[in-house]
Nucleic acid binder design. Structure first.
Lengths: 166, 166
DNA sequence: GCGGCCGCGCAAGATCATTGCGCGGGCCGA
DNA sequence: TCGGCCCGCGCAATGATCTTGCGCGGCCGC
């Protein structure tokens, strides 16, 4: 299923909507070179096939008072699928955890967290995260600044560049 | 500036648009309890003040053929502001790097990367990332699965929950 | 009490979304 | 080669939405 039945217009639609998710359909149609009705139909198909997972406004966490961003590298004691799922379930209910990815290797999970200030985060760290069952160790790093954020370059362009260079 | 002059309606607007960035303005207005024109004016203000940084379609990388996702922890040899900026500039031109965050502590940067397959990533790792000037070491971890992704809970709700619990 | 200011809601014209429909090109079998 | 089928485009029309100007009412300071 992966990338099989997409033509150039589809890829361009994805790239444009990745760059500006609130673009009107007529503007989108103009940019990809077809008229509005088939363009809208293509977007609907891309949504239904799962290429487009949703549309979201990017909110500036710092403007909202979340001055602190932290990456937390978590190691568990036991890593059976049951243990992993239990930790994932726990992560869902922690509002300060914005993202969680399960990794291979030494680190089992990496968590992207936010907090209004350092003391709030440290309270979460000591009383929630490290105190959670099955957590062996947590290493944290404060984010100084974001150097690059998605959507950096549309995936369409990534494909091209990878083909060219490597 | 942080979070000062936002009322409840503003926060609700942010939460709704974070959840669905393509919601029509009339639907948004209905949900936050005001009529469409002032709602649109508020959205414009939130955009101009930087609370809303943009709208983006979330594209499924795996569906597009990017089967591999990797976190790379990078340590540099020298960490002067000039050295840091030089590495950040280099990161911008690598299409496989989707995100880059500068951290404090041992690790200087964490990179979120994608690749069509493992060999493509390893080629990038050896011939680009570790070969870049000033890079001391790179530790990589494959992403097994995403357990939680933004926008998890709208920031509005995070604020409430932090105030309640901790 | 009173004037000024701010933000809301109403109304109208422009723009956009969405559907049905006809047309043309590509493909396959006769 | 030639029909017939199928798919996707573009046109057209209707309804919804966007966008602006404007008047009203509440709130604050004088």
């Amino acid at each position: 299923m992966a990338g099989a039945k997409l033509d150039d217009i589809d890829r361009k639609i994805l790239a444009e909507l990745q760059a500006d998710g609130r673009m009107t359909n007529v503007e989108l149609a103009r940019r990809v070179g077809i008229s509005a009705p088939p363009c809208l139909r293509r977007v609907r198909v891309l949504e239904e096939l799962g290429y487009i997972r949703g549309y979201h406004a990017r909110i500036d966490a710092r403007e909202l008072g979340f001055e602190v961003q932290v990456f937390a590298m978590v190691r568990l004691i036991a890593q059976s699928e049951r243990d992993l799922a239990a930790f994932e379930a726990q992560v869902q209910v922690w509002p300060l955890v914005r993202e969680c990815h399960m990794l291979n290797g030494e680190i089992d999970f990496i968590l992207k967290c936010v907090a209004p200030d350092l003391s709030t985060f440290q309270r979460f760290l000591t009383s929630s995260l490290t105190a959670a069952p099955n957590v062996a160790s947590v290493k944290t790093s404060l984010v100084i600044r974001a150097s690059k954020t998605e959507p950096a370059v549309p995936f369409e362009v990534v494909e091209e560049r990878v083909r060219e260079a490597g």
